[in-house]
Design a protein around this nucleic acid. Structure first.
Lengths: 213, 213
DNA sequence: AACATCCTCTTTGGATACATAATGCCGTAT
DNA sequence: ATACGGCATTATGTATCCAAAGAGGATGTT
């Protein structure tokens, strides 16, 4: 049988949290997970600690582990941080993006525009932004940004659902401007548009506090 | 005997990493630590995972754990991130700082100026900056900033040592300007000065690559 | 009938013991 | 003399067992 290592368990759980199978606030019992993976509780504990480090799981001593929950103000803060970090990250990425990656980004912009179902949109939008950062060397900055994307994923989904999946035309415009700036190697433009892109989302999000009930 | 819980072990190790007792690159053997704390290896593993989440320890499967090491470019990046995050954090803190905290900040500015030994300077400077953020609610932003301070602590020490502990007059000026802005509730000024303060340090640091050998 | 208390059961925390993977050393062969 | 390979040692990974803390339910009392 598979020698299920902690990182393997963690990776599977991470994916389930991101795709919504496991909702924020949901309890994670060590024994259940251990049984599921055919392992003992020790590797599971390790996996949970790993996810705790990612901010995806909250552990309380002598109580248990839950999928992390964000309050409205925490989510707002997450977007404020994105606003400051992602322009920096993309400016470090742009000079090192390979032609194949830029081609894929171009594809993604039109795929996003044509996307019909919600999960597809979320997946493509995530791929677009994270791929646009792929040129930056892996470091603390990348780690922080990915962590924010992960911990806020559920709320992006909730927001999109609430909107009846009416993605605004402005969003697509901004994606095109970002792509345009990348192609022309115009970091300052991209930084500005990306900052606006995130700020607009933050403000829109803050008008839908009902997500956090 | 002390019911040494993982967070207790982690806290002690954290302090030892920060005060330089444990140097970057140093190996952390589970058995040794377990013996030292009179515990078994499981709580130690948990503690190491916690510190890994803090970025202070690097673990490799089937190999071991080491005190995290920063390359020159990673350290540079850390300061770029600080430059963007700390002004935001302090602006959220200023409106909620209590008079007693401001009084302590005032004390610290002059204590820093008068500080004679290196460890004292490091401690006071750290207290000044982190206390200036104490008004902000604990969240992701605070966590990120504290993490950066922790992972770069060793390199601040190395840098100060190299300089023969000649703290520049400019540093003290900047601290005074920050304090002045806090007292006058002038967030924009503080943000600007703090950004400059950090950028100046980043540039100075990048002129001493020998620290990273 | 309602509330408080105690008991039980569930779940997590920790320790010991065993399996497994990596490293370093030594011996041999080229 | 050097390089390669196998063996022994060491440290980490996992499983099982036991202890302790917390939650929920039942019972007794007011």
């Amino acid at each position: 049988m598979a020698p299920s290592s902690p990182s393997r368990v963690a990776q599977t759980l991470r994916e389930e949290i991101l795709d919504g199978t496991l909702a924020p606030g949901e309890r994670l019992r060590q024994e259940d997970i251990a049984l599921r993976f055919g392992a003992s509780r020790q590797p599971v504990r390790d996996a949970l600690r790993l996810l705790e480090g990612d901010g995806l799981v909250t552990m309380v001593a002598n109580a248990g582990a839950w999928v992390s929950k964000l309050s409205e103000s925490e989510c707002y803060e997450a977007y404020q941080v994105r606003e400051r970090l992602e322009p920096l990250l993309i400016s470090q990425s742009i000079p090192h993006l390979k032609p194949a990656q830029i081609a894929r980004l171009t594809e993604l912009v039109s795929e996003i525009e044509k996307s019909s179902d919600l999960e597809q949109f979320l997946r493509l939008d995530r791929e677009f932004h994270l791929l646009s950062y792929a040129g930056a060397e892996a470091g603390m900055l990348r780690e922080f940004v990915e962590r924010i994307w992960n911990t806020t994923q559920h709320y992006r989904r909730a927001f999109a659902k609430l909107n009846g999946f009416a993605t605004s035309e402005v969003t697509h415009m901004e994606h095109k401007l970002i792509l345009d700036g990348i192609i022309r190697n115009d970091s300052p433009q991209v930084e500005k548009v990306l900052e606006t892109h995130i700020r607009r989302t933050r403000i829109t999000l803050s008008e839908h506090k009902e997500i956090f009930n």
